[in-house]
Amino acid sequence: MTNNKKVKQIDRRIIFLLIFIGVALPLLITIGFKIEVTENVQKAYDLVNSLPPNTKVLISFDYDPASKPELHPMAKAVVKHCLERDYQIICTALWPMGVRMCSDTFESLEKDFPNKKYGIDFVNLGYKVGGKITIQKMGRDFRSVFPTDTGGINIDEMPIMDGVTDFSDLGFVFSFSAGDPGIKDWVMIAHDTYSVLTSGGTTGVSAPAMLPYVNEQGQLTGLLGALKAAAEYELLIDSPGSATNGMDAQSIAHLIIIIFIVIGNVNFYKNRKKNRERG
């Protein structure tokens, strides 16, 4: 029986190799699978697209380099959309490395928006420890949590912060979240306590846990889940980027995994049938 099992098991390294090839080749040779926009991404896009110019919005970078491949493309796409809409973007981070993720996002968009000025059109307020407690305090008194930006400049000296005292002065809150603290804390405090429209993007692992918050109560207005959602957002703003480029690879890799799941299940049923016949 043990020998029989060994014969039927595929060496996991062969699976790794096939996945590697399945991901690498489509990155080199574009296939161009069609990308369909899903309802949750459309809702998030509609929210970002719905406000008048000069609205102040808050974007929180709650992730670090470990989740960068999943969350950075969607962060770039949403920030680009906000800049195109002439919103004033206030950035915060509930994760220490979120500060760097934010500055990297704006640096990568610098060429597309040469007229956007730091302190007027966007600001990086940096990282604050505390998760929920920090958000709660921001809802009551924004300035006590972030008296200065990451460079130590007093926020009173920045035109973008004029009139921002609490969450009621924001059009919406958007969190790019890799876990805890993150988007759930924004839902609990920003939306459920202070009634600010809240949306965001999460990693693939976190997305199923956050999907129930996209509901009739509007706890989340849409949700971007993993790289696929980033590609959909890039399609909506007509700006293909790294997410769009990765979609062929994603589809091929999924196809390989599905084939192996089918092979595994067929083998399982065959073995079970044989064992039953043997009694």
């Binding site: 996945i19 991901v23 491949p69 999943e70 889940g225 790289l227």
Partner: peptide, 11 residues
């Protein structure tokens, strides 16, 4: 979703 996330990291 987890598979999609892990493949995204490889990408």
């Amino acid at each position: 979703y987890t598979v999609m996330g892990r493949i995204s990291l490889l990408i």
